[in-house]
Each structure stands twice: as C-alpha cells, then as structure tokens.
Amino acid sequence: MSRLLEIENLRVEIPALTGAAPILEGVDIGLDRGEKLGIVGESGCGKSMTALAIMGLLPGAARATGAIRLDGRDLLATSEREMQGIRGRRIAMVFQEPMTALNPVKTIGAQIAESLILHLRLPKAQAAERARALLDRVGLPGPRFSLDLYPHQLSGGQRQRVVIAIALACGPDVLIADEPTTALDVTIQAQILDLLEDLVAEMGMALVLITHDLGVVEETCERMMVMYAGRVVESGRTADVFAHMAHPYTRGLFAASPRSALLTSAREPSGRKRRLAAIPGQVPDPRARPPGCAFAPRCPRAQDDCRAAPPPLAPLGAPGRADHAAACLHPHPPSGMAGDVAASAEGAR
C-alpha cells in the first residue's frame, strides 16, 4: 500500500528569478496517516516552498519536477481543476500570519462555511451549523464568538484558531502548518500547538509542521527534517536527530536557539557571559550557491571534498536508527549532545 503523502526528488525552480538554480532540490518526504513531521530551517531555506508545492500553489513562474503523490496519485500531474477539489478537502494549510490570512470584509462564519459549501455541497444553514461546531472545537465558543464576527474583532490567537477551523472544515488527510505560531505571543503559542496536536490525534490526519523553532518540533513531531538552501540536510526520527545532530548545520541551528543555553552553563570558564552562538555567514543566494555543499562556507568541519559536489542524503547507519540520514561527508560522530553543542558553538566563533 502506498503512503498517504510521498514526495520524491522534488525540485522547484523559478527560472526568471534565479536562472537555472533550483529553489528546492532533491526533497523526499514520506508521511503516513497520524504522523507528524517537522520541517526546520532558517528563512529562505525552502520550507514554505515545499508547502506551496504540495498545495499546488507555487508562484506563477515556478516549475516543479519530481513527484508529489497523495495516496499514490501524482499531484504534479493533476490538472488545476482537480487540484481545486483536493485543496481544502484532502490537504489543508494553516498560515503564519493570522492577522492577514483572513478576509477583513467577510464574517468568520462565512469564511469557514465557504469550503463546506464548496467541497461538501452543504446547504447554507447546514454549513453554518458545522461552522459553529468547528468554532466551538477550536476554542471559540458561542455565543461570545458569534459566526457574525469580523476578523478585526478578534485577537491574533483567536484569528489563528479561525484559520485552523477553516483548514479543518472538510476533515483533510494532510494538514500543513507553516509557522503557525511564529506571529503569536509566547503564551498563546503553546495553546495553539496543543490545539493542533489534539486535532491531529482526534481526526487522524498527518501533520507537516513547518517552523524555525527546534523546540516546537521536539515537542510536537515524531519525525523531522532539517532544510538548508533548498535541500534536506538531515532527517530522521526526532529523538534520533536530537540525540545525535550529525549535520553541522543542525548543531549550529540548535546552538543558535535559546534552548541550547539551558543545556550549557550561563558563564564561560573565563567568567564572560555566554552568548547565543550565531551561525557565521549567511544563507547563500540561490543564484550563487557554492558548487559543493551549500553549508560549506559556514561550516567549521568543512574540508576540500565538501566543496566539490553536494553530498547526498545518506543513512548514517546507526543501529536502531534506520531512517536517520544526513547530507554530510564529515558528520559529527554520535555522542553526548550537550557538551558537543557547546563545543561546536565555540568552534563557530
């Protein structure tokens, strides 16, 4: 039996913008019902492009090749008309900016009911009834949160709940959440993530959670993928990736996140206050990516062979961690992570 969502060798290019250089290259994803996959990386690494490619909503000039199969059916070969029947019905998406993701001149009830009417052909009254139930489910109970409210009458967190209700309206098989909590207050972030997790468990969907926050992935997803400059650099079960962090970029990302500070002492031996370790350098422009590993110019472990050709994503072969893979010629050896991270943060300076 084929997997629910299977992406094979996905490549996206925007010739007008970047020449022949791809925005995404060689992305593989396999996802089953009920699974939660986290995609992590800096802005511009191709996370959102991957999401838009799955939705078939890439910007006009972009060309996608490879395969994106939903229950065995290749979405890249599906007509736009048929994609319209899949979007919102089988694959739904939650966006980053709840403040602007809702239409300001339509009631939230109408915006939730719209896809119910479109896909399930529900009569208006029934669609409104379902919309009410959805709002209740996402934590906006009536009568305080009436269907007749407009987006500007809600806070950011409340709006994100409405966006989630819209995405869930038709009971999709795959939910793509693109930075769903980034624009929200920290206190609200946890609530929204909990809500998403509950809903995924309850409805048996598969979740693709796109974020730059490693902590969110660790808490939410059983599998994860780290992306850099349009490629997957490390993937595997979240626990394995966190335990090993084979790719130097993954370590850099972790060292740069405030969470790493909790694992290392706040003061260096010299007594200087320890700062978060930024990864030196910048994400390369897609038009000017180095010929080899795109991370090599920023990598403390880079050697000459790294600059020759991009390393393929290869299994690390650790026993019991079959699908843990990294695209690195000189991965960090598996060892206790916290000390290593501190060391790599030192090395990065």
């Binding site: 966006f95 602007t100 819209i166």
Partner: peptide
C-alpha cells in the same frame, strides 16, 4: 494579500478567489 492565498488553499479557483475575495 494573504487572505487570497487562504482562499486558494480552501480550494477556490483563481477566478472565484478574485471575485469573491
């Protein structure tokens, strides 16, 4: 605007998103 992308993600055609949203 972002809400046009939301409308397309719901499954609306480009035409419907244009006229309705």
């Amino acid at each position: 605007e972002d809400f046009i992308r939301t409308a397309r993600a719901k499954g609306l055609s480009g035409e419907a998103a244009l006229w309705r949203h």
